[in-house]
């Protein structure tokens, strides 16, 4: 195992050993919670009971905060601190949410647990194994030193011209050579931003960007992001459903948890 000792960085990295310890601790805590929760009094041991519902609320807030911590890098906040926060918040949040679930996997909300497991697995893989693959990528691609395909080059030239023309709408001061879309572009000029994004995707396809590395290395991050957005969306749906459509969720049983409305009964 490598020790995390970047010579030129002034910020503290979350070392692999620390990450491993956090994940192991989280798994242990979640397991302990699942084992112990059946022993609680019935009122407290149910997912919607005051104890476990509180755990769910706090856990969900921590997971959303973890999500936001990563997004902060898009708006100028230091990446490494954000990443450390992301790991800590997600770990604690996940434990609380898992304990809240009481291990029930037969119902639709268990999809959230599944995506949470996927998120953790992908994240841990990227740090412990994916990072080594990334290191080994150096010198493994020779496409840049291959005989150029003139048709590809011509199409790339067209795309560059096209992107430059789009930039006059998106960000007139920007240089295509160093430009990438930011959240504000999607807000201020969503249509043009989408067109620009599609040009970028075609450029990547022509260059063979993701095809130049292994599937896992190429797609772990898109998949991680997809799962994260899906998880947040699912979490939102679950919260709204159990608090507003409590009657629908209860499906004829007693609504014992805190809610706003019991629509759907």
């Amino acid at each position: 195992m490598l020790t995390g000792r970047p010579a030129s960085s002034n910020d503290t990295d979350l070392a692999d050993s620390r990450l491993t310890a956090i994940v192991i601790a989280a798994v242990a805590a979640a397991s302990a919670g699942l084992v112990l929760s059946p022993g609680l009094p019935e009122d407290l041991g149910r997912p919607g009971g005051p104890l476990l519902q509180s755990a769910a609320i706090i856990g969900s807030m921590l997971l959303v905060a973890s999500f936001v911590a990563v997004l902060l890098k898009k708006i100028g906040h230091p990446g490494k601190a954000g990443f450390r926060a992301h790991v800590w918040l997600a770990s604690v949040g996940a434990v609380l949410v898992i304990v809240h679930s009481t291990g029930s996997v037969a119902k639709i909300p268990s999809l959230l647990l599944l995506s949470l497991a996927g998120l953790v697995a992908l994240g841990v893989w990227s740090r412990l194994a994916g990072s080594k693959r990334m290191a080994r990528t150096f010198g493994s691609k020779l496409a840049g030193f291959s005989k150029p395909d003139e048709a590809t080059r011509a199409r790339l030239a067209e795309l560059i011209t096209h992107k430059k023309s789009l930039l006059s709408t998106i960000d007139s001061n920007a240089l295509e050579a160093v430009f990438s879309l930011k959240p504000r572009h999607w807000i201020t000029a969503p249509g043009t931003a989408l067109t620009y994004h599609r040009a970028v995707m075609e450029e990547h396809r022509l260059i063979g960007t993701r095809a130049s590395v292994s599937l896992a290395q190429a797609y772990w991050r898109p998949l991680h992001r997809l799962l994260a957005w899906g998880f947040v969306a699912g979490l939102l749906i679950h919260v709204i459903t159990v608090t507003v459509f409590a009657g629908y969720v209860a499906d004829g049983r007693a609504v014992y948890w805190w809610r706003i409305a019991e629509w759907g009964s």
């Binding site: 995390g4 979350l14 990528t137 150096f138 010198g139 691609k141 840049g144 063979g208």
Partner: peptide
Amino acid sequence: VTACPYGAMGYDAGGH
């Protein structure tokens, strides 16, 4: 690392 078609972007797997 994925983006560079020359494979010329390095990575510190210890320091991430």
